[in-house]
């Protein structure tokens, strides 16, 4: 009886702790981009199979997030932004997070294979491996290019969605991949500029820590310039059209304007106004990606009705 009364209730996680392990905010981006990749493909899946494919892609992405939280618990405990996560906060045991992530990874890959095809399942398996092993266990702690190369993991979902529908990977899928891949560094470096203490306290070699903030500002501009032709290029393929081209032109001009403003500032200016420009650029980067993929989707709907397309 005494055992029951003294049972440690703090070690039992709630449902929301396990949901948090899946990084739901990242998952929402994965769901959206995978859905667009699947819907703009020239082959159309039956609705329930399409829904299942998106769900399994999202589950795979969430599983890799759980593996990331298991491995990075030491870093997360130091950073203000992440110290409330279930593992560093002690609500979920590291072993539980590992088992949860590993089992869900296998489940998501096998189910995507059974629901769609081996190409999509293989890409999902590679994405989980890339994020959990290559990025989390390797690049993140070793190189300031962690964000650049690790960004590939976040760029795969639309390609997996495309592969789920077509069974192959075309130039359009590669361009959607490239769009997210090139977008990721400016997005995260802008965040690193105004969350400056977090990364340096945790010993993560972010570009802001290793090469300085001036170099980071220059890198943001460089990647934003390189991003524009990728986005415009995608607008000229079969997933693009006049609508995508118009939206892309406006978004890239606005994004470039923001990157230029970041490049033109120095730290004293940024600190004086509480990193207003950097925060605005970070917020707009989310809108940039959402509207780009939204435009792909809207263009596909127009094409289906035979209006306003290439």
């Amino acid at each position: 009886m005494a055992d029951i009364l003294t049972h440690d209730t703090q070690t039992e996680a709630s449902l929301s702790d396990f949901v948090q392990l899946l990084k739901p905010r990242v998952m929402s981006l994965v769901v959206f981009t995978a859905m667009v990749g699947l819907l703009v493909a020239p082959v159309h899946l039956p609705p329930v199979t399409a829904l299942a494919a998106i769900l399994f892609i999202a589950l795979g992405a969430g599983a890799s997030g759980a593996l990331n939280m298991w491995w990075d618990a030491d870093i997360d405990a130091v950073m203000r932004r992440t110290r409330g996560r279930p593992v560093p906060a002690g609500r979920v045991q590291p072993g539980e997070a590992l088992a949860f992530g590993a089992v869900l990874s296998v489940f998501a890959v096998v189910m995507l294979w059974l629901a769609t095809n081996l190409v999509a399942a293989g890409l999902l398996a590679f994405t989980i491996f890339f994020y959990a092993v290559v990025y989390t266990m390797g690049l993140k702690r070793w190189t300031p290019q962690n964000i650049v190369i690790g960004g590939a993991a976040g760029a795969f979902p639309p390609m997996i969605g495309w592969a789920a529908a077509t069974g192959s990977v075309g130039i359009e899928a590669w361009l959607m991949f490239a769009l997210i891949f090139m977008w990721t560094p400016p997005h995260f470096w802008a965040l690193a500029l105004f969350m400056k203490d977090d990364y340096s306290n945790a010993g993560v070699p972010m570009l802001t820590v290793t090469h300085g903030r001036k170099a980071t500002r220059a890198h943001i501009l460089a990647y934003t310039i390189l991003l524009a032709p990728v986005a415009i290029g995608a607008a000229l393929t079969s997933i693009g059209g006049p609508l995508v081209l118009a939206v892309s032109a406006v978004l890239n001009l606005w994004f470039l304007k923001g990157a230029w403003a970041i490049r033109a500032r120095d730290e004293s200016e940024a600190e004086a106004d509480g990193y207003r420009v950097e925060k605005a650029f970070f917020r707009f980067s989310l809108i940039y990606l959402f509207l780009h993929f939204g435009a792909f989707l809207a263009q596909a709907a127009l094409r289906l009705n035979g209006i306003w397309s290439w």
């Binding site: 049972h7 209730t9 039992e12 996680a13 709630s14 449902l15 929301s16 396990f18 949901v19």
Partner: peptide, 12 residues
């Protein structure tokens, strides 16, 4: 509170 947490997990 522990039972409520367990119920939530089971329902999930």
């Amino acid at each position: 509170e522990l039972h409520r947490r367990r119920l939530g997990r089971n329902l999930g």
